[in-house]
């Protein structure tokens, strides 16, 4: 079972894959980082993130919508729940 920190690191890899130009900025990402307001993600990027999470963590997030992910913490919570 991955720790929350390990999940966060993998999540950062997804965020870098989405926009490699933001790699430097992502060092400061933590659980309270807001996906839309702080990272500038748009609905398509959120969709990219959700699909990537399922592929990368090999999990099924179930009937979630991209609007369920407001902060990095929300994403980690969902992943952690699926990994249990």
């Amino acid at each position: 079972m991955l720790s929350r920190n390990e999940i966060l690191e993998k999540l950062k890899e997804i965020l870098v894959a989405m926009d490699p130009s933001k790699e430097g900025e992502l060092d400061n990402v933590n659980e309270s980082t807001r996906l839309v307001e702080d990272l500038g993600l748009m609905s398509i990027s959120l969709l990219f993130m959700v699909v990537s999470i399922e592929e990368k963590f090999n999990v099924e997030l179930g009937d979630v919508s991209v609007n369920d992910f407001v902060t990095v913490k929300d994403a980690i919570d969902h992943i952690e729940k699926c990994l249990k």
Binding site: A17, I44, L47, F48, V51, S52
Partner: peptide, 14 residues
């Protein structure tokens, strides 16, 4: 186009 671009990027990533 945004979905087409996303699908291409995901194909590359995985």
């Amino acid at each position: 186009p945004a979905i087409a671009e996303m699908a291409l990027n995901l194909s590359r990533q995985f």
